[in-house]
């Protein structure tokens, strides 16, 4: 190791690996990891230095259902067969629901709409809690995002596994409904996994959706009721 070390950068890497950064500093380091190969090399070196501490972690068996979910989320059986030509516009005239909208209580308008939904689609038997998984595949056949949803807890989980979007573009996720319409989910952060607890209206939408698709939109462009950019990935839900 004769090359002169950038001490500040190396210390930044050490702190990142140890995990002492707050959320903002951590996000900054994660961005730097993607853009600064020297920093990435420092991080790798620190992972090798501190990683052996993990040997002290006590072994603890996870529940058996975890492997079942992993198998579902990684299996080829959830890959979408080629779907209909193009998604039709959404029928509903509701406002845009972004992630925060999904996680928060429904607005009065949405609540009213929900009453309508309930009246139309009355009491199917309350289904036992189940787990739904969609592996969202790009056109190159590689997975971009794994979406999983547990009806009991109403937890929707997004695990990005694909490449970062091209500069100036944002991947935007849409729910594919059974009637062929789509509904905006929100922009996908390809750098971090996300988990959201859905409000009842959204939970119902997801529970009855066919799958999800991702369009590639110009960054900062306000979403409409359907994608403006090309569809770049999709995946159908399968039940676990």
């Amino acid at each position: 190791m004769s090359d002169p070390r950038d001490e500040a950068r190396d210390l930044n890497a050490a702190e990142h690996v140890l995990g002492v950064e707050d959320a903002d500093a951590r996000a900054a380091s994660q961005a730097r990891l993607r853009n600064d190969p020297a920093f990435a090399a420092d991080v790798e070196a620190w992972e090798a230095r501190l990683g052996p501490l993990a040997e002290d972690a006590p072994a603890e068996a996870p529940g058996a259902h975890v492997w079942t979910r992993i198998e579902q989320a990684t299996g080829d059986n959830v890959i979408a067969a080629l779907p209909r030509p193009a998604a039709k516009p959404v029928a509903s005239g509701k406002g845009v629901n972004f992630w925060r909208g999904w996680a928060m209580a429904a607005s009065a308008v949405a609540a009213a709409a929900l009453v309508g939904v309930f009246m139309l689609t009355t009491p199917k038997m309350a289904p036992a809690p189940h787990h739904m998984v969609a592996k969202v595949m790009g056109m190159d056949g590689k997975p971009d995002v794994v979406v999983s949803y547990t009806t009991g807890t109403k937890n929707l989980m997004l695990t990005p596994v694909g490449d970062m979007p091209p500069k100036g573009m944002t991947p935007r996720m849409w729910l594919m409904r059974k009637d062929g319409s789509v509904m905006l989910v929100g922009d996908v952060d390809m750098a971090h996994p996300e988990r959201k607890q859905l409000n009842p209206a959204m939970a119902d939408e997801v529970a009855h959706a066919k799958g999800v698709m991702i369009s590639l939109e110009e960054a900062g462009r306000q979403p409409g009721r359907k994608p403006s950019g090309p569809m770049v990935a999709k995946g159908m839900f399968s039940l676990v």
Binding site: A73, V146, N155, V161
Partner: peptide, 14 residues
């Protein structure tokens, strides 16, 4: 932790 574990192995697979 089980959610995170799931994410971890999905990441490992990919």
């Amino acid at each position: 932790a089980e959610d995170v574990l799931q994410e971890v192995y999905v990441t490992v697979w990919n």
